[in-house]
Amino acid sequence: MSEYENIFIGENTKKLVIHLKNHGEVLNLNPNFELMKQLDVGGVKGLAVTAGIEGDYDFISRYFNPWAGINEDPVTGSVHTLLASYWCEILGKNRLSAHQASKRGGEMVLRLRKDKRLEIIGDFIITLKGRIYI
């Protein structure tokens, strides 16, 4: 059983976050997505698991949402709006280096501005492009 530091739900995002004590456990998670789909999650819109890490990053994370058909999201900007605020407060800084440790994975620099908005900096690939006419 994993030891955790904190568990909370984002007030606006409704994403559940579990802060584990050991980053190795985040890396080695092997969720049973079929079992997760059967759970009544009561409005939770995804599960982020995170831990601090020494070295090139301030923290790592993984993000799961089998309830929406996304077992593991490779790199998730939306959950990092929540994780950035959380880790900035813990680490006492407003610029963080983060790694989402999915199979494909990705690195981000997160900068929490004074107006509480978040800048996410990193390389990306456009996977969908479109227009909405109103």
Results as ranks from 00 to 15, higher is better:
E107C: 09
R117L: 11
L110P: 03
P66Q: 04
V41S: 13
G10N: 04
Y63R: 05
A51S: 15
F33W: 05
P31R: 10
R104D: 04
G46H: 07
N65H: 11
V44M: 15
E25C: 00
K14A: 11
I60N: 04
K14L: 12
K45P: 04
G24T: 12
G55H: 09
I60S: 08
L39D: 10
H99W: 06
E11A: 08
L82E: 07
S85C: 01
N32A: 14
F64C: 12
T81W: 00
S102P: 05
G105P: 12
K37M: 11
Q100H: 03
W67K: 12
V26A: 02
L39Q: 14
P31V: 08
F64K: 11
F59V: 11
A84Q: 01
R62H: 02
R104P: 03
I60K: 04
R104I: 07
N94K: 14
I53R: 08
L96W: 06
V75E: 03
M108W: 04
A68W: 02
L110G: 04
R117E: 10
L29I: 13
G42C: 11
G105N: 11
Q38L: 15
G55F: 04
K103Y: 04
Y57W: 13
E119C: 03
E11M: 02
F64G: 13
E54A: 14
R117G: 02
R117C: 01
F59M: 04
L110R: 02
L110H: 03
T81P: 00
H19C: 00
A48R: 01
G92Q: 04
L16F: 09
G69E: 09
T50R: 00
V109L: 12
